[in-house]
C-alpha cells in the first residue's frame, strides 16, 4: 500500500517536474506528440501521398497515423527515460530503503498518464471526423495495459543494463528510431513487399498498433492482435523484471 502511494507520488512529481515553470504547463504533454503527428502527417500523407485505404482522405490518414504514433511515443519515451532512471536517482538509491525496481517504473507510468490524455484527443477527433465512435473504445484500458507491460519490461532491462554500458543510451535512440520505421505506423503493412512482411511477426509493436487501430478506428474487436499484445507484454515485463532482479545487486557496484 505504502509502496503504491510512494509510486503515485513519484509519478506525480515526475509529471510536474518536466513542466515546472513553463507557461503552457500540462499542455506541453499534448502539444509535443501532436506536433510530431502533424509533421509526419504532412510529409507522409500530403507530400508522399501514403494512404491506408484506397481513396482515404488525408484527415483520416492523420487519424491512422495518430493511433499508431501514440503507443509508439509512449513506449519510446518510457524506455529512453527509464534507461537513465538508476543513474539519475543514484543519491536516492543510497539513502532510501525503497526497492530500486520502482525507479524505472516511474517514467513508464507517467507516459501512460500522458498517453491517456492524448488518446482522449484522438477520440474527440475521431468522433468529429467519423461521425460516431465504436463500442470497442472500451478496450482502451486493456490496450494501454499491454503498452505499459511492454514498456515496463524494456524499461527494467535497459535501466539495469545502461549503468554497466553507458553506450546503451546511444544505441537505444537508434534502435527506437528503427522500431518506428519497422512498424507500419506511417504506411500500411500491405505496402511492404510480401517477401519482407514476416518481419512484422517479430515486432510486438506491430500487434499493438493493429489492436489500437482496430478498436479505436475500425470498430472491430481486435481479438488476435490484443491477445498477442497482452501475452507479449506479459512475457516482456516478466523477463525484464527478472533480468532487473538478477542484476540489481551488481548494479550498485557500478553506479
Amino acid at each position: 500500500m505504502t509502496l503504491l502511494h510512494t509510486l503515485f507520488l513519484l509519478v506525480r512529481r515526475d509529471l510536474k517536474v518536466r513542466i515546472a515553470g513553463s507557461y503552457l504547463g500540462v499542455l506541453w504533454y499534448i502539444a509535443q506528440p501532436l506536433f510530431l503527428i502533424l509533421l509526419y502527417g504532412f510529409v507522409f500523407g500530403a507530400v508522399l501521398g501514403v494512404r491506408f485505404h484506397r481513396d482515404q482522405p488525408s484527415e483520416l490518414f492523420v487519424l491512422y497515423l495518430m493511433a499508431g504514433m501514440l503507443p509508439y511515443i509512449g513506449l519510446q519515451e518510457s524506455v529512453l527515460r527509464a534507461s537513465n532512471a538508476l543513474v539519475d536517482n543514484r543519491s536516492l538509491l543510497s539513502s532510501s530503503p525503497l526497492p530500486i525496481w520502482l525507479y524505472p517504473l516511474v517514467p513508464v507510468l507517467s507516459s501512460a498518464v500522458t498517453e491517456f490524455f492524448a488518446l482522449l484527443i484522438l477520440l474527440v477527433v475521431a468522433w468529429w471526423l467519423l461521425g460516431s465512435l465504436s463500442v470497442w473504445i472500451m478496450l482502451i484500458p486493456l490496450l494501454l495495459l499491454a503498452r505499459v507491460l511492454m514498456s515496463a519490461g524494456l524499461a527494467w532491462s535497459f535501466a539495469v543494463l545502461t549503468p554497466f554500458l553507458r553506450d546503451i543510451s546511444q544505441i537505444l535512440t537508434m534502435l527506437l528510431t528503427l522500431l518506428l520505421f519497422a512498424t507500419p505506423i506511417f504506411y500500411p503493412a500491405d505496402m511492404v513487399p510480401e517477401s519482407w512482411r514476416w518481419i512484422f511477426g517479430f515486432n510486438p509493436l506491430y500487434y499493438l498498433v493493429s489492436a489500437y487501430r482496430g478498436a479505436i478506428l475500425e470498430g472491430v474487436f481486435p481479438a488476435v492482435a490484443l491477445c498477442v499484445s497482452l501475452a507479449l507484454g506479459l512475457v516482456v515485463s516478466i523477463v525484464g523484471f527478472l533480468l532487473f532482479r538478477r542484476l540489481s545487486l551488481a548494479v550498485r557496484d557500478v553506479l
Binding site: 500500500m1 505504502t2 502511494h5 510512494t6 507520488l9 513519484l10 536516492l92 532510501s96 530503503p97 525503497l98
Partner: peptide, 8 residues
C-alpha cells in the same frame, strides 16, 4: 516521508 516508508 513516502521515501522513508511512511503511509499517506
Amino acid at each position: 516521508c513516502a521515501l522513508l516508508g511512511l503511509s499517506a
